[in-house]
Design a protein around this nucleic acid. Sequence first.
DNA 1: TATTTTATAACGAACATTCAATTGAAAATC
DNA 2: GATTTTCAATTGAATGTTCGTTATAAAATA
Lengths: 200, 200
Amino acid sequence: MPARAGKREAERKAQVLAAARTCIVALGYERVTIRDIAEAAGVSTGTVVFYFREKESVLEAALLGKIQDTGIAFRAALEGAPSARERLQRLVEASLPANDEVRDEWRLWLTFWGEATRNGRLRAVSERQHRRWTRFLGGIVREGVTAGEFAPVDPEATSAQIAALIDGMAVQATLGNPTLSADRMRVLCLDALRRLLPTP
Amino acid sequence: MPARAGKREAERKAQVLAAARTCIVALGYERVTIRDIAEAAGVSTGTVVFYFREKESVLEAALLGKIQDTGIAFRAALEGAPSARERLQRLVEASLPANDEVRDEWRLWLTFWGEATRNGRLRAVSERQHRRWTRFLGGIVREGVTAGEFAPVDPEATSAQIAALIDGMAVQATLGNPTLSADRMRVLCLDALRRLLPTP
DNA sequence: TATTTTATAACGAACATTCAATTGAAAATC
DNA sequence: GATTTTCAATTGAATGTTCGTTATAAAATA
């Protein structure tokens, strides 16, 4: 086994994938060329191909990488939240496309969903990620119910409803719909939380 | 001004646009070629170019055409519905990606959203359509409140929440998420309707 | 026949991919 | 420690394909 194989590999791959994500958001999945990616990463097209055998691999890996670690930021947002309701409210807050970072993340999701209608591998990851996310939400709802914060509701159903609500609103907010700004999304989501999860 | 526009024009355009939509759903917006469209429509590439000066025009018109008459089927579904609640329930039912027709329509919406993040014209249509749709829902909610069917709620807020809920669920159901089948979507949406719009 | 409609061919641009050549740094040898 | 060897890493140009568009010819229609 060559001990020195792939020393720069991880670093370079990450660099190329980050560039690819930037290109995808700016141009759209299908419109991105290897040259675009190479230029954005500051390397030659040969380098891109060297680390990812073909274009499709770069694009898929770029999407999957970001999609799969969605949720990391969410867990961080929960630090020190005293109650289940507060935790849910913070998740809503962290979901608002109110700054470029979150907005770009939602843009990537919209692109991802569009692409996943035709790509089985992407679709599989979408499922796994959605299950993870609703389980996460469901756990918080269950805690709140157990602790007597919320009226007794079905945590599975409620978490799926909350997840759908956030996704649906984020679509409009991300597209810049003036009747559904990030601020309005906050108001509507928090209101829905109160109505779906009343105090007992 | 050409006094006599082509006789077959409307017919041919519709034929080409329908073919373009099929191709978009199957291949993705940017991957569709004029040759694909021509083949699917059973005409030559020359015909496609004759009626739509350039490729982009075909694709945009294909998306916009379908997107803009979303809602026609909905209005038909409401025929003879006796109450506001019944009307909302029928709208949910008509939104379920439970058959190929509705599923393809949602696939087109997912593609549309992805493309609209980068295309201002598509984004403008998205806004207009969303406003139309929430106003439509809002009207039904208002009727129900006035008629005493629902507890007094803000129709604007509630309709935006219902719209988001349906969109968000449809994303997962359209992607074939096994934990969110069309049947499960029906259950969850109807349950959410009950909770967001309780009887007074 | 004149006009509209449809088909075909050809063109140049842009693309993903391949590949021969080069570099750079670690490993082996002395 | 200096020299040589080795191979991962990187480049950029060449290749063949496919695309949108344009030009033009053929057919249909009135």
